[in-house]
């Protein structure tokens, strides 16, 4: 369902190495598992853009008062992608079952902390990429608070974003998306994982939207938020602690049309918070929707 951009990612990396820009390569065999980088922006007075593409690992992004991008990256030796298997690999089968088991007698595992992480800055755009095949990595990135983000994770525990007032676009195939002190606009998408967002204020500059197939969507809003909240789900519950009543569009709603009638099916709910405002769209097939007032 989600179009994870792995192919694009490898192409991008190739392009990066040719680009006339700052390149930080962390692909050396590290002595210690954790590494730190500080990236200066081309023009700190202007808002920056952070693009993160990661195949496996965890991503934490925090807005802070500074004007550089601070990155801490750590290899996750104890990362267990198996624990996520039930969510996405129900039909997954080993095809090499007939292979003979090789003896490991007298052998000990070699701890190896090599990982491949590309960090690039060009015209206030910082790209952090960890490609397929690399060891799982946990990164913590501190960015100026008004940064805009585009974050993609294929598999991991979570993407955590906090204290960001710029645009946020985030996609995780496996792994929860958690956001605190978010201003928006934000567009977030998962397959079966949860999306949990606590808004600080709610930006009216563009719509915000959340989509997941079977994950829960949990949104917290300030009481004075003006927004038109639209919820579409087919199974699962919608639980709201917001002061405003949701209007339900009937399961079957017939509308007269020029050449017939239009009928809508599905649980369509809408609430105009504080008179309504910029649209917040919440879409899930079978997940629950939780709407809370902070």
């Amino acid at each position: 369902m989600t179009n994870f951009k792995l192919q694009k990612l490898t192409t991008v990396i190739k392009t990066i190495t040719l680009a006339n820009a700052l390149i930080f390569s962390a692909s050396a065999y590290a002595q210690q598992a954790e590494r730190q980088y500080s990236v200066e922006l081309s023009d700190p007075s202007k808002p920056m853009f952070l693009d993160v593409e990661m195949y496996m690992g965890n991503i934490t992004i925090e807005g802070y008062e500074g004007q550089t991008v601070e990155i801490v990256a750590e290899v996750l030796n104890d990362f267990q992608p198996d624990k996520h298997k039930d969510k996405w690999q129900k039909n997954w089968k080993r095809v090499d079952t007939n292979k003979p088991m090789r003896s490991t007698e007298g052998l000990t595992p070699v701890s190896h902390t090599a990982f491949n992480l590309e960090i690039m800055e060009s015209s206030n755009r910082v790209e952090i990429e960890s490609e397929f095949g690399s060891k799982p990595v946990a990164i913590v990135v501190k960015v100026p608070q008004n940064a805009s983000l585009d974050v993609n994770l294929y598999t991991g525990d979570s993407i955590n974003i906090s204290n960001i007032s710029g645009n946020v676009e985030v996609e995780s195939h496996i792994g929860n998306i958690n956001g605190t002190l978010i201003t928006g606009p934000i567009v977030a998408e998962t397959h079966a994982s949860d999306i949990v967002i606590e808004f600080n204020t709610f930006s009216d500059s563009a719509p915000s939207s959340f989509a997941t197939h079977s994950g829960d969507i949990d949104i917290s809003l300030l009481a004075n938020t003006a927004s038109t909240v639209e919820v579409q789900n087919y199974q699962g519950q919608v639980l709201s602690g917001l002061g405003t009543e949701f209007e339900s569009v009937d399961k079957v709603n017939k509308k007269q049309r020029e050449n017939g009638q239009k009928i809508e099916i599905g649980s369509q709910l809408q609430a105009k918070l504080n008179g309504g405002g910029q649209v917040m769209s919440i879409n899930t097939y079978s997940g629950n929707v939780y709407l809370r007032q902070k």
Binding site: E171, V187, E189, P207, S209, Q232, E258
Partner: peptide, 18 residues
């Protein structure tokens, strides 16, 4: 790439009379 965008596009297209 984005499901949210596709759903929004559909909602808009649904307003076409014919």
């Amino acid at each position: 790439d984005s499901t949210s965008v596709k759903l929004a596009a559909l909602k808009s297209l649904a307003e076409i009379q014919n």
